[in-house]
Write a protein that binds this DNA or RNA. Structure first.
Lengths: 183, 183, 183, 183
DNA sequence: CATGAATGAGTGTTCATTCAT
DNA sequence: AATGAATGAACACTCATTCAT
C-alpha cells in the first residue's frame, strides 16, 4: 500500500523518526492498523518496502540517464550520472536517516542497489573502453566509480561545508571521478 | 563507565542489535542497572558515548599517522591514511550498524568527526602544496579528499565485491585519491 | 472504564494503597494494561477520574436532597443534607486516603466540589431568607455552612470519639449548623 | 535530624512534592544519604517526624494561648484560639498536601493531635461551664468545638472564596463557634 | 559515626501485533 | 476485505535502601 509508505515519510517529516509507529502510520495513511497488516507482514516490511521503492526510483533515474547518454562521451555521461544521483537523493532527504535507522543492513534488496549501480557503471564503461587509460579489470573500475559517485554525491548534498555551493561540489565530484577513470 | 560501553559491543556481537537493552547491558557489564544510570542519563547517552569513544579512537589514529608521516611525500601519506582508516574501522565492525541505528544524526560529537577529518587533511595538504597541481581552494580539496578516503575505505572494507581482495581494493582507493589530488 | 475505577477501589480495600499499580489495576479489572492506557493517558488520570466520579455521586445526592426538600423548612433540609452527606461518604470510606494521597490538589474537578457545594447551599439558603436572622451576605453564610456540613460530617463519621454514637454526632452537627444560621 | 526535616520542606516549596526523595533530602540537608538512615529507619519515618514536629508546634501554640487566656471570658478565648490556629497553619502551608500525601492516616502521632486538641478544649470549656447554656456532655461539646475550630480555620485559610477577607472569615468562624457553644 | 557508590525490585508506559466482528 | 479494540511482552528508568570503606 503506497499510502502507508507515503504516510511514513510524512510522519518522519512532520513529527520525527521517533513518531513512526505502525498505528500512527495507519492513522496518517487513513487506513486501519488491521489493513496495514494485510499488506505488510510486520513493521520491518514497511521500511524494506520503502527502501525498495526508493531504490527503484533511483535505479529508474540511473537507467534513464544511461539510455539518454548512450552515445555521449564519458565525461558528459558522468556529469549526467552525478546530476541524476544528486537529483534522486534531493527529494525526501529524511529518508536516509530513516532507512539507516530502521532497515537491517543485510535486508532484502538493500545490497541490490550496490549491485545494480555497479552493473550500470560497468555497462557504461564497457562501451567506452577506448576512453579509458586504465587497462585494468572493468569490474574493479566499475566498483570504484560506483562508490565514488554514490558516496561523493551524498557528501556533496549532505556534508558539504557551507562555503561550497552545490554546483561547485558537483564539479569537484566530477573532477574526482574523471581523474580516476582517466588515470 | 567503559565496562558498559564494552558490554554493549559484546551484546551486539553475540546477540544482535535487538538485544541491546539497558538492563542487559548492565548485566553483561557486571554492574547493576542503577549504576548504569548513575553514569548515563539515559539509553541514548550510552550510544553517544560509544560513538564519541570510537571517533576519538579513529581520530587518534589519524593524528598519529599524520605525525608519523609529517615528512613523507604525499603518496606515502595518503597510503598510510587509507591504511589507518581501514585499520581503525576493522576492529568492531558491528559498531557501524549499531551507531547508525541508535545515534541521532545531529548528536553531540557526531559531526565533529567530519570536521576533524577535514581539518586533518587540510593540514596534511597545506604542507604539500608543491605536490598539488590544483591551485584550487585548499578547503575544497580537503573536503573531497576527506570524503574520498572515508567513503572509499568503508566501501573497500564492507562493500567490496568478493572477487576483489582487500589489498587490491586499498590500492584502488589510493589510486582514486592520488588521481584526484594530482589532476 | 468503570471497571478500572472499581478495580482500584477493590485493590485499596483488599491490599492497601501501596498495591495500586497500573498493571495490578488492569489485572483486577480483567483487562490488559494496554486497554487501561487506551482510556487513561496516565496513572494520575485514573485517580482523577475516580475523584470526579465520587464527586459526581455526592453531588447527585446533594441535588436530590435539595429538590426533595425544596418546600421543607430549613431545619429539615439541613438535617437531610447532613444525612445525605454522611450517607454519601459512608460508602467507599477508603476513597478518602486514596484520593488525598494520589490526586494533586489543584487537579481537574477537585475544587469544583467546593464550588458546587457552596452553590447548593447558597440556593438552599436563598429561598429561606425569612428563616435567617442574619442579614449578612448570602455568600458568606453559604461558605460557612457548606464547610460546616462538609467538615463536621467527616468528623462525625471518621473522627468521632468512640463514646459518641453516629446518631448523636449527627444531632450535634445539626445543632451546630442551625445555631450558626439562626444566630 | 532537624536539617533533614527542613530540607524536605524546602524541597516541597521549591521543587514540588514529586521531588521529595530520600537522596534529594539528604543532599539538600547537606548530609549523606547514609546519615539520613542513621536517624530515620525509613522514608515514612521522615514524614512522621515532620508531622509530629508540626503537631507539637501547633500544640505548643494552643497551650500557650490557653494559659494566656486562662482568666479571659469564653468569647475572648475562642477568638484567641482561632487566631492561634490560623497563625499556626499559616507558616509552611505546603505541609498539608505533603503530610496528607505521605503520612499513613493511622500513623504514630497522627490521631494524637485530635486527642490533644479535644483535651485542650475540654479543659477550656470545663472552667467556663457557667458561660454555657448547654448542660450537655462536656466531651461532646469539646469534640464539636475542636473540630469546628480546626476545620473552619483550615477552610478560612485555604478554601475561603476570594471575595472574603481573612479577617471576615475569622469573624465568621468565631460566630459559628460561639453560636454553637451558646445554644 | 559518616559516606556515597552500588543495588535491584518494581513501576509506568509503549507499541507491534492479533482477531472477533 | 476492512476494522480497531484489545493484548501483553518488553522496556527504560526511579529511588528507597544497604554496606564496604
Amino acid at each position: 500500500m503506497e499510502a502507508v509508505l507515503d504516510a511514513v515519510i510524512r510522519i518522519v517529516q512532520r513529527e520525527g523518526i521517533g513518531a513512526v509507529t505502525t498505528n500512527r502510520a495507519a492513522e496518517v495513511a487513513g487506513v486501519s492498523i488491521g489493513s496495514v497488516y494485510q499488506y505488510f507482514p510486520d513493521k520491518q516490511a514497511i521500511f524494506i518496502a520503502l527502501h525498495r521503492r526508493h531504490i527503484d526510483q533511483v535505479d529508474r533515474i540511473i537507467q534513464t540517464t544511461l539510455v539518454e547518454h548512450a552515445a555521449a562521451p564519458l565525461d558528459d555521461l558522468m556529469r549526467a550520472m552525478i546530476d541524476a544521483m544528486i537529483e534522486a537523493h534531493s527529494s525526501d532527504p529524511e529518508l536516509y536517516p530513516l532507512l539507516a535507522t530502521k532497515v537491517p543492513h543485510r535486508a532484502n534488496g538493500t545490497s541490490d542497489f550496490a549491485v545494480r549501480l555497479h552493473g550500470a557503471f560497468r555497462l557504461a564503461l564497457a562501451s567506452r573502453t577506448h576512453e579509458l587509460k586504465q587497462a585494468s579489470d572493468l569490474d574493479r573500475l566499475a566498483f570504484v566509480v560506483a562508490n565514488l559517485v554514490d558516496s561523493l554525491s551524498h557528501a556533496a548534498l549532505f556534508r558539504r561545508p557551507s562555503r561550497l555551493s552545490l554546483g561547485e561540489a558537483k564539479a569537484e565530484v566530477l573532477k574526482a571521478v574523471l581523474a580516476y577513470v582517466h588515470c
